[in-house]
Design a protein around this nucleic acid. Structure first.
Lengths: 179, 179
DNA sequence: ACCTGAACACCGTTCAAGT
DNA sequence: ACCTGAACACCGTTCAAGT
C-alpha cells in the first residue's frame, strides 16, 4: 500500500478540488455551481477537472466525503459533550447543507455513484446513532427503529417550512417518546 | 368570472400540456424530460410551450396540480374504505411519483413558484390528515403532531432504501404509537 | 392570439494536441 | 502524467416574424 509521489500529488489536487467544490456547492447549490466555476476557483481549465473526476456526480461524492470527514472530526472534538448537545450540533450542520441533502436524494435516482454514497452514508449514520442510543439504555431493536425514524424526521424538518412551535413539538415528542 | 371561448381554449391546451408533462416527468424524471420532449408529445415547437407557461418550473407546478387533482378524485372514490386502506393507497401513489417528491424539494430551493406550491401542498395535506385523525379520536394537538411526523416518515421511506422488515417496523410503530 | 425558425447563452463532457 | 483550446451535443429560453 506504499504511496508514491505521483499518488500523493494526485490526492492533494483532488482535495483542492473537493475543498473548492464543497464550498461552492454549499454557497450556491449543486445545480447552480458549474464545472467552470469550480475550475476557476482553483485556476485550471474546466476540462482539467475530468482528469481527476469522471463526472460532476463523482465530484459531488468527493465533496460530500470531505464535508463528512470534516464533520466527523469536529464531532470527535465534542465526544465529551452531552448527547443532546451533540445531536443538536449535528442537526445544525445538516441544516447548513440542506440543499445538498435534497440534491443527493434527487441525484441518487439518476447516478449510481451518488446512490451508493447515499446508501453507505445512511448505513454509517444509523450505526453510529444505534451505538449512542444503546449506550443510553435502549435495546438493539428499539435503537434501530429510533435511528431510522429520527433520521427521517430530521430530514423532514430540514426540507419543509415549519414554525418554531412545530419544531419544538416534534423534537419534544421524539426525544420523550415511548417505544 | 364568465369564461369566454378564448379562456376555455387556453385551459384545454394547458391541460393537454399538463397531461403530457406529468406523464413524461413520472416516466423519465423532471430533469431527464426536456422541453423538446414535452413539445414533441403534443406536436408543437418547443418554444410554443412558453406561450402557456413562463418556465419549466411553472410547467412542473401545472403537472403537479393535475396529478394531485387526479389523486384526490380517486381518493374520493374510496371515501367509504377503511382509513388504513386509504392511507396505504395514498402512500403507494406517492411512491409511484417518488422522483417528483425529490424534485420538488430540490427545485423549491431555487424556484419561488415551486416553493409556494410545496408549502400550499403540505398545508392542504396536513389539514386533511388532521381532519381524519381527529375523526378517529385524537385531540387537535395530537392530530397535528402525528400529521407532521407521519408525513416526514413516509417521505423518508420513499427516498431511502430499506428492507421490508424495516418498513413494517416503522409503520407498526407509527400506527400504534403513544402520543 | 397563437405558433414558429432561428438564435442566444449557457451546460457537462470529449478529444486531439501540447508539455 | 497532466493540462488545455476547441469543439460537440445538448439545454432552457428569447425574439422577431408569420398567420
Amino acid at each position: 500500500m506504499a504511496k508514491n509521489k505521483r499518488t500523493i500529488d494526485r490526492e492533494i489536487k483532488r482535495d483542492e478540488i473537493d475543498a473548492a467544490a464543497s464550498r461552492l456547492f454549499i454557497q450556491h447549490g449543486y445545480e447552480a455551481t458549474s464545472m467552470s466555476m469550480i475550475a476557476a476557483a482553483i485556476d485550471v481549465a474546466p476540462n482539467t477537472l475530468y482528469w481527476y473526476y469522471k463526472s460532476k456526480d463523482e465530484m459531488l461524492v468527493g465533496a460530500l466525503n470531505r464535508l463528512v470527514a470534516q464533520g466527523m472530526a469536529e464531532l470527535h472534538g465534542r465526544a465529551h459533550a452531552p448527547f443532546a448537545d451533540q445531536l443538536s450540533w449535528a442537526i445544525q450542520q445538516f441544516a447548513q447543507a440542506s440543499d445538498l441533502v435534497s440534491t443527493v436524494h434527487a441525484r441518487a435516482a439518476r447516478s449510481e455513484v451518488v446512490r451508493e454514497w447515499h446508501e453507505a452514508f445512511h448505513r454509517a449514520l444509523e450505526n453510529m446513532l444505534v451505538g449512542k442510543l444503546q449506550a443510553r439504555g435502549l435495546t438493539s431493536a428499539q435503537a434501530r427503529l429510533m435511528a431510522t425514524v429520527g433520521t427521517f424526521v430530521v430530514e423532514g424538518l430540514l426540507s419543509h417550512p415549519h414554525t418554531p412551535a412545530q419544531r419544538s413539538d416534534v423534537i419534544a415528542w421524539m426525544t420523550g417518546m415511548k417505544v
